[in-house]
Amino acid sequence: MPLIVEKKPEVLITEDGIRTDGRGPLDLRPIKIQVGVLSRADGSAYLEWGGNRVLAAVYGPREVHPKHMALPDRALLRCRYNMAPFSTPERKRPGPDRRSVELSKVIREALLPSIFLERYPGTAIDVFVEILRSDAGTRVAGVTAASLALADAGIEMRGLVTAVAVGRVEDWVVVDPNHDEDQWGDADIPVAFLMEEKEITLLQLDGPMTQEQFDRALELASQAADLIYEVQKEALRRPYEAVRLEILRRGE
């Protein structure tokens, strides 16, 4: 029995478009990213997005186990999305459930088009996404962190993948739904873009929407992704910037 009692807020969004966390419809929650946070992984990223806390790690290219899974002409990309038992209000039983199996698949397919897999034939690239704390939008947070972990691992890529969710609350299309909107809103649409070409590599929709609302949702997702992309690039540059400053300091 959970020790948390959840209450639906009386108003999800006001007439002026103010949301339960005080944001306007187009506002993102704060995002903070750090790459290279784990010593053992070949690449890693830690991401805070609203109340979400996500760790992503990449191992590879490495030997494939079991061997028969190896592909002769390209790398095998594997992905595991997993929620920590303490990531949810009620303890989640450890291990994969049907939801995490599906999310592992859509995250893998969101990242797949961004990687030059043909450069690493016969190997495996393993991506692990651990949700330490969940607060709506964990899959898009996972994709955003995982893409940086791949880049941090030095894997050759076409570009970064950036993901964001948009949703519908009554007649409003809102960017980056929060917990209340995720729980009681009318529609939820996670989207991922390969930013170089603005190709969509993940798209799910859950809940009814008019064609107009859907078009607007994609437009808003694209704009929000542009903002998140800047945060990603900055996070990727930061460790090198630190090295550059250290060299300058020593030069003096």
Binding site: L38, R40, A41, S44, L55, A57, Y59, R62, R80, N82, A84, P85, P94, G95, P96, D126, F128, E130
Partner: peptide
Amino acid sequence: NVELLPLASPTFEPGP
């Protein structure tokens, strides 16, 4: 309960 996540080491495997 202990989870030795595959994220933590190249030798840790997913599973119970």
